[in-house]
């Protein structure tokens, strides 16, 4: 009987632990998409980093920490502060890229960070090139990643028509992303899912003016 109790309690502990990870991640991911406050996003990023410190074999906690910092720049207008947040995101991402060099999502996030760095027209050329390079790498690793096409669409949408950008060039990419967003869902509930909502908005925008 004693053995049963021990085994049982051990199993419970294991199960509880796994549940803790899933639960903690899920809670934080939900919070992440609900807020538009920079302070809150910093707090959420810190939570993800705490999870990352314990779950050293998982890349998703660190990924979400970096993504939280990157996302926070949507709610900042001053360019110096944007770069401070992006530096934090980059610092998290650097470690992840080293230990998981074959994860497509990490290169998408890299591309996303680069494109957010375009805070003035002078840096446009440099960072849109870097961003597109990271997207090519992400596509090589997983050509069914919808965020590759969503981010590329965004880059092209914001590139002046003169340099081969513009709405009509971006449209097929948003379409491809939309198709993959619906048909290529990952089984892991914690898997990155961002981009779908905004992709639909961009798609509508492109179609509207057609």
């Amino acid at each position: 009987m004693r053995t049963i109790v021990i085994i049982l309690s051990l199993c419970t502990a294991q199960l509880m632990h796994a549940n803790d990870y899933q639960k903690a991640m899920k809670e934080n991911i939900e919070k992440l998409f609900k807020t538009n406050n920079v302070e809150t996003l910093n707090t959420i990023a810190a939570s993800f980093k705490r999870i990352a410190a314990v779950e050293t074999s998982e890349w998703l906690p660190g990924y979400y920490a970096a993504y939280s910092y990157a996302r926070s720049t949507h709610f900042i207008s001053e360019s110096d502060s944007i770069h401070v947040q992006l530096d934090k995101a980059q610092a998290e991402l650097n470690g992840l890229l080293e230990s998981n060099p074959d994860e497509s999502e990490l290169y998408v996030l890299q591309a996303f960070i680069y494109s957010l760095r375009i805070t003035n027209p002078m840096s446009g050329y440099k960072y849109s090139n870097l961003s597109n390079e990271a997207l090519s790498k992400a596509e090589q690793l997983d050509s069914n990643n919808p965020r590759v096409y969503y981010c590329r669409g965004n880059n092209i949408y914001h590139t002046p028509k003169m340099f081969g950008g513009g709405q009509q060039k971006a449209l097929p990419l948003f379409e491809k992303a939309a198709e993959l967003f619906t048909n290529n869902k990952n089984d892991n509930p914690l898997w990155p899912s961002w981009g779908s909502y905004h992709n639909n908005q961009m798609l509508a925008k492109c179609k509207e003016t057609k």
Partner: peptide, 15 residues
């Protein structure tokens, strides 16, 4: 600002 304070071995903490 934003220093991560973690209770070792857990997910708990603050900044």
């Amino acid at each position: 600002v934003g220093v991560n304070i973690t209770i070792k071995g857990t997910y708990d903490g603050t900044i």
